[in-house]
Design a protein around this nucleic acid. Structure first.
Lengths: 253, 253
DNA sequence: CGCGGAATTGATGTGCATCAACTCGGGTGG
DNA sequence: CCACCCGAGTTGATGCACATCAATTCCGCG
């Protein structure tokens, strides 16, 4: 029994490595020696539980974090308790990149369900990227990807209707789960309606109403936090702009 | 006369170097030898004119660009001509960071007025950052700053009223000009009302109305593209949240 | 079993988009 | 140098998408 336990722990370690590395080194093959070195600097943390904070706004920036399992939300808290949800982070995703500039976290991160989080001390990562060019490039790509993603969100919040926002949200979750080898059509949302609305710039009630309408229209099935996507195609059409976005003035110059 | 011209060109070169370097190396002192090397890879381009494109969406990514003088807008064009303005870029600011990931530009950049733009070939910059640790760190900071900034915009578009958006916009322009040693209270907007509205997720008419109201309230003076900020304090209060933002549900968990 | 927060559903209000008409300024050509 | 024109900007009237308010139901949890 005790031997079995050891093996099991080891397999978790390996899974963790694999998961963390994958997000950092997606398409580029690193030398196996380099992988070793990268792997050494990654710290595992014991599992965190719903509501636990990974870091909070104002904390000194020390590390980046990778979601291994579970899910995390990042948000910018303001004094009066009104907060803006900045993003939801699924397995394989990296958080804390926005803290590099000021050497201070500019948002807080809270786990939404029991989650495993890996910590990557940034100074050591930086040393390593200076030695391994392909890793440096990978870091630039990761940061750049984050910028491009936020840009998409700007478009979403600036120009899209409530329907489109929800459709984008659902498809985004779906795609990201799929990338991790999980079902893209049947999943559980770990965040509340409230958090979804906050994230998308919508009221809770609007989110709720649109979910039920999508269900009536046969696009999806909703039961509490359990979601089944029934008609991906139609959702994609919704997003594409077949539907009427708000504010679609033209431009020239 | 010809000698005078040479001197003048040289001073422009120096100014260009200084400006470009400043944005890359703000707070950290690089070795002067390193500065030389960095400087060598920066290409000058002849001045561009209103409407000229620096790059367009889909172009192969080769370089980053620094605005030396003038101003630039970045935008994501869609087939039907409806576009989303993603940002306005003033002297000293860097554009193209979102292209690193896909090795392709994901937005287009157009100059709004006669502008001088410097080009920084990215592969060569990357080589250099691998050799100069403080430059690498600076690059990480720049990318991180961009992410943090987009995050602020998310909050703006997701939660703020039209008044707040305009106030944030004006203060942002004001601060950025000030950083460059220009007047923070008296300036010309190089972009149209249309572009401002598009950027902020508002209709042209709304922008226009609020500008006139701000003027009536003594916050600023507006004449065509000429802006004078009269009451910075009140604008800042508007942003702070004294005014009623939309959608300020609370959150818990 | 009963409490409390989350979610749904309905009724009402409003901020801003949209439509429409007008003005202004700047460029162009006669 | 002036008359014309055309796009940018302003101003007013109207409509609608979504917020907000209010009431109810649902589910998880002690």
């Amino acid at each position: 029994m005790s031997q079995r336990k050891v093996i099991s722990l080891e397999s978790i370690r390996v899974a963790c490595r694999h998961c963390t590395l994958a997000s950092l080194c997606l398409p580029m093959g690193l030398e196996s020696g380099d992988v070793e070195r990268l792997d050494e600097l990654i710290k595992r943390t014991r599992p965190l539980h719903r509501g636990d904070l990974i870091f909070r706004k104002g904390d000194r920036f020390k590390s980046l974090y990778v979601v291994k399992t579970g899910s995390v939300k990042t948000f910018a808290p303001s004094k009066e308790g009104a907060e803006q949800v900045l993003g939801f982070h699924l397995p394989g995703e990296l958080i804390g990149l926005d803290a590099i500039e000021r050497d201070t976290h500019v948002c807080s991160a809270k786990v939404l369900e029991t989650s495993a989080i890996c910590e990557i001390p940034f100074p050591r990562l930086e040393e390593l990227t200076a030695i391994i060019p392909s890793l440096q490039h990978q870091m630039y790509r990761l940061l750049s990807k984050e910028i491009a993603h936020e840009t998409d969100m700007l478009l979403l919040l600036g120009k899209k209707s409530a329907d489109e926002r929800l459709a984008v949200f659902l498809l985004s979750i779906s795609k990201r789960l799929h990338k991790r080898g999980l079902s893209s059509t049947d999943f559980y949302l770990s965040m509340s309606r409230h958090e979804i609305g906050n994230y998308l710039g919508l009221a809770v009630e609007t989110v709720s109403r649109i979910f039920t309408r999508f269900q009536e229209e046969g696009l999806m099935r909703v039961d509490r936090k359990h979601i089944e996507i029934l008609d991906v195609r139609s959702l994609e059409l919704l997003v594409g702009g077949a539907g009427q976005s708000r504010r679609q003035h033209q431009q020239h110059t």
